[in-house]
C-alpha cells in the first residue's frame, strides 16, 4: 500500500500570491460563499452549545444562537443525571486516553527505531508484516481478541483498551514515526556511537529529542481518537461506573434523552470540549499531520 496510496508528503508552502480573483466582486462573492459554508457547518454546533445554556422550554422554540437567559442548570442536571456522576466517567476517559497516549508513543517509537536504525536478522520481513497490518480492518481480529480478553478476565476492565496500545498495535503510528526517523541524518547516530552511546542511549538522547514533532502528533491524535472512541468501550466495559464519557453520554440518551435535551446537550458539549481545547492548542500540528500523512480525520 505504501507504493501507491502514499500520502502526498508535503507541508504547506507559502500561499500562492497570485491575485487570481481579479475583480473585487468576485472576491466578495468568494468570501460570501465561504462564510455561508462556515455558517452552515458551525451552526448546529453553536446551536448545541447555545441550547445547553437554555431552559428546556426554550430549546424547541428557538433556532437562535443566543440564549435569552443563559443558565447552567442543564449542566448540573446532566452532571448528576446518571447513577454515576459524570466526573467519574470523565476520569475514566482521561485515564484510558492518557495510558493509550503513553503506550502508543512508547511502543511505536521503539518499533520505528528498530525498523529504521538497527540491523537485525528478519528486519525486512517484519517490516513488510507491519506494512501489511496498516490496512487490515480491525474487524478481522475483533472477535478472537474479545474472546481472548474474556478468557483472561479482562472484560469489564480498562486492560483491553490500554494494554494493546503498549504493544504498538496502531501500525499507523509506527509507520508515521518510521517516516520521520528516516529523515534524521544517520551521521548523528554515528557521532553518538563515536561518543560511546549504545542503541538505547542513542534512542533516548538523540532520536527521541529530535522527534518531538512526530511524537506530539502521535500523542495528540492518540488522545483524540481514544477519547472519541465508542466501539471498544462499548464492547469491553459493562458496569456504568467503569464507563467512558462517550458511553455515559450514550446511556444518558436512553435515560434522559427524550425528556431532557438541555442536559443532554450540556453533557455533549462537555465531552467534545477536551477535543476542542486540543484543537485550539495543536491546530497547526493536527492540520499538518493530516496534510503530510493523509490521516483520515
Amino acid at each position: 500500500m505504501t507504493e501507491v496510496v502514499r500520502a502526498p508528503a508535503i507541508a504547506f508552502p507559502a500561499a500562492p500570491s497570485r491575485a487570481d480573483i481579479g475583480s473585487p466582486w468576485r472576491r466578495a462573492f468568494a468570501y460570501a460563499l465561504l462564510l455561508a459554508v462556515t455558517f452552515v457547518l458551525l451552526y448546529p454546533l453553536l446551536w448545541m452549545v447555545a441550547s445547553s445554556l437554555r431552559p428546556d422550554s426554550e430549546i424547541f422554540h428557538s433556532t437562535s444562537l443566543i440564549p435569552q437567559a443563559p443558565t447552567f442548570d442543564a449542566y448540573s442536571r446532566g452532571w448528576n443525571g446518571l447513577s454515576v456522576g459524570f466526573s467519574q466517567l470523565f476520569l475514566n476517559s482521561l485515564l484510558i486516553s492518557v495510558l493509550v497516549v503513553i503506550g502508543n508513543v512508547m511502543s511505536c517509537a521503539m518499533a520505528a527505531y528498530a525498523f529504521t536504525r538497527l540491523r537485525f536478522r528478519g528486519r525486512g520481513f517484519w517490516f513488510a508484516m507491519m506494512l501489511g497490518t496498516l490496512m487490515l480492518p480491525q474487524h478481522a481480529v475483533l472477535i478472537p481478541q474479545y474472546i481472548m480478553f474474556l478468557k483472561l478476565g479482562w472484560v469489564n476492565t480498562i486492560l483491553p483498551l490500554t494494554i494493546p496500545k503498549f504493544l504498538a498495535v496502531d501500525a499507523f503510528f509506527v509507520f508515521l514515526m518510521v517516516q520521520f526517523f528516516r529523515g534524521i541524518p544517520r551521521e548523528l547516530d554515528e557521532a553518538a556511537v563515536m561518543d560511546g552511546c549504545g542503541p538505547l542511549r542513542i534512542f533516548l538522547k538523540v532520536i527521541l529529542p529530535l522527534s518531538t514533532p512526530v511524537l506530539a502528533t502521535a500523542a495528540v491524535f492518540s488522545f483524540i481518537w481514544t477519547w472519541d472512541d465508542f466501539f471498544a468501550p462499548l464492547i469491553y466495559l459493562n458496569d456504568i461506573e467503569k464507563y467512558t464519557a462517550q458511553l455515559g453520554l450514550r446511556t444518558f440518551v436512553d435515560s434522559a434523552g427524550q425528556s431532557d435535551w438541555g442536559a443532554l446537550f450540556a453533557m455533549s458539549t462537555l465531552t467534545v470540549l477536551p477535543i476542542f481545547i486540543l484543537f485550539l492548542m495543536f491546530q497547526r500540528l493536527l492540520i499538518e499531520g493530516i496534510a503530510t500523512t493523509g490521516m483520515k480525520r
Binding site: S107, C108, A111, A114, T133, P164, L167, A168, V169, P199
Partner: peptide, 23 residues
C-alpha cells in the same frame, strides 16, 4: 544488533503475534 533490534521490536512483535496474527 540482533539483540538490540529484537529488544526494541519486542512490544510490536508481541502485539503482532498475539493481537493480530493469532486473532
Amino acid at each position: 544488533d540482533d539483540l538490540a533490534g529484537y529488544g526494541f521490536l519486542l512490544p510490536w512483535l508481541l502485539g503482532f503475534l498475539l493481537l493480530t496474527l493469532g486473532p
